[in-house]
Design a protein around this nucleic acid. Structure first.
Lengths: 233, 233
DNA sequence: CTTATTGGATAGTGACAGTATCCAGTCGTG
DNA sequence: CACGACTGGATACTGTCACTATCCAATAAG
C-alpha cells in the first residue's frame, strides 16, 4: 500500500508517518521507484505499536526508537531485549546524584535484595524508587524503604502472574511485542485502577462528594483537530 | 527568610521560584517593603511539595496549580478535595471520542460497577482505562475488560491498605498533603516495583542477561537515527 | 501529454518549563 | 549620609519536544 493508505488505515497523519520514518520508528517501505514505496501490514502493525507506546505509555519518541531497534535486532537474546525494553520504557533516570539520593539508592538496593529479586545493577527503576523514597522523606518526614513492602508484595504477585502468561513458543518478535505493550499498557491500567479504587474507598470513608458539573481540566489548548492528539505530561 | 534563602534551602533556583509564584503554585511572601518579602517554613514546605509533584509525579505546572488551589480552599469538603486531587493528578483525558473508545468506556464502566466500586462518572481514570483497553485490542487482538481483573484485585487491596493508613485527626491540610503526595509518590513506587519484579522473574524465566556495560538510555543524539545507538550492544 | 500524487528534504509551529535580563527601591557598612 | 550589593517584580528570551507545513522533482494515472 502507499503511504496515504497506511495513514488512513492507522489514523496517523502522513506527515507524522514521515517523521517516524525519519526517526527510524517505522522501517522504510520497499521503494518501487524513485518516488514510490510500498508498505505492508507489518508497517501498519508497527505504526499501531508506536502509537500505543506514545499515546498510552507517553514514551518519548527517542526511547521508542531505541526499544524498537532492540526488538528488531535478530541476534539479541530474548532476555536482553526484555531488559532493554524495561530500561527504555521507564522514566528517565534522574540527573540528580546527590548524597541523599545515593544513600536512598543503597537502601533500595538492600530492600530489593531482601526480597530476593535479582535485577541488573543499572536498572533505572532502582533509581526511580530511590527518588520516590527521597521525595517521601522530603515531604512527610523520615521513613525506611519498608514503607514499600505492601507495594512490593502486590508487584511481585502481578509479575508472577504476567510472566506465567507469556508464551514464548510463538514467534520471538511477537513475544517481545507482547511484553513491550504489556509493560506499558498494563502499567497504565494498573495506575488507573488504583486511582479508581482509592476514589471509591475514600468516598466511602469521607463521604461521597456532592454532584457537580464534571471537572474541566488541563486542556492541551489544541482545537478539535481530529486524530491529532497532543498529550502533555 | 528572603527568597534567596528559600532557594538555597529548597534547592530550587530563584528564577524558578519566581515562576512558581507567578503561576500561583506557591503563595506570595509577606511584603515587608516595596522590594522585600518574607517567606517562612510553610513556603518551604509548599515548594518541596511542588517539586515532588513536578519531578516524581511529572505533573504539569498548570495541574499542580489547580490541585493546590483546591487543597488551599478552606471551604471545600475533604472528599471534594480528594476527588479533585485524583482528577487533577491523573493523565490528561484523551481528546479522542471515537466510537471505539466510547464502547470501551461503557465496558469499563460495567467492569467497575461489577467490582462494586462507585466512582464519579467523569473520573479521568475511567477514560484512561478505556484507552488502555482500546490500545490493547489494537495491538493484540480482541479481549474483554476482564483482562484487568488481577490488576483490579491488586489495586483494591492497595487502596484499602492506603486508606486505613490515613489519619484525619490531624490537620486537614496535612491529610490532604499526605494524599496528594501518596497518590503521586506511591504510584511511581508501585510502577518501579512492578518493573523490578518483572525484570527479576523474566530473568529467571528466560535466563539472566550477560553482564555488559550498563545501558545508557535515551540520549537525544540529534542527527543520527535512534536505531544506531541501540544496535551494537 | 497533462495533471495529480507521492516520497523525501527542509523549515516552521506551538506548548511547556524554565532562565535571563532589567530596573527601581532598600539594606547595611563605612 | 553616601554608595555599592542585593531584592522582588515585570518582561523577554531559550531550549526541547513532537509534530506540521511547504517545496520540489519524479512518477503514475487518465
Amino acid at each position: 500500500m502507499r503511504m496515504s493508505e497506511l495513514s488512513e488505515r492507522s489514523g496517523v497523519p502522513v506527515a507524522t508517518i514521515k517523521y517516524y520514518l525519519r526517526e527510524g520508528l517505522v522501517p522504510a517501505g520497499i521503494s518501487t521507484s524513485a518516488t514510490q514505496a510500498a508498505y505492508d501490514d507489518s508497517h501498519l502493525e508497527r505504526l499501531r505499536l508506536v502509537r500505543v507506546l506514545r499515546e498510552i505509555g507517553q514514551v518519548p519518541v527517542a526511547a521508542v526508537g531505541a526499544v524498537l531497534a532492540a526488538v528488531d535486532d535478530p541476534n539479541l537474546p530474548l532476555a536482553d531485549v526484555i531488559a532493554l525494553a524495561h530500561h527504555g520504557l521507564g522514566p528517565p533516570p534522574p540527573v540528580d546524584p546527590t548524597d541523599e539520593h545515593r544513600r536512598a539508592r543503597a537502601e533500595v538496593d538492600a530492600f530489593v535484595a531482601r526480597r530476593g529479586w535479582s535485577v541488573e545493577a543499572g536498572a533505572p527503576s532502582i533509581d526511580a524508587l530511590a527518588a520516590a523514597l527521597v521525595a517521601l522523606r522530603s515531604v512527610t518526614g523520615p521513613c525506611t524503604a519498608d514503607v514499600f513492602v505492601p507495594y512490593a508484595d502486590a508487584a511481585d504477585e502481578l509479575a508472577r502472574f504476567e510472566l506465567a502468561w507469556i508464551d514464548p513458543s510463538q514467534g520471538v518478535g511477537d513475544t517481545i511485542g507482547q511484553i513491550v505493550v504489556g509493560t506499558v499498557v498494563y502499567e497504565q491500567a494498573l495506575v488507573a485502577l488504583r486511582r479508581l479504587a482509592e476514589e471509591h474507598y475514600s468516598g466511602e470513608r469521607f463521604g461521597r462528594r456532592a454532584d457537580r458539573p464534571p471537572t474541566k481540566r488541563r486542556r492541551p489548548t489544541q482545537g478539535t483537530s481530529p486524530g491529532a492528539e497532543a498529550n502533555g505530561r
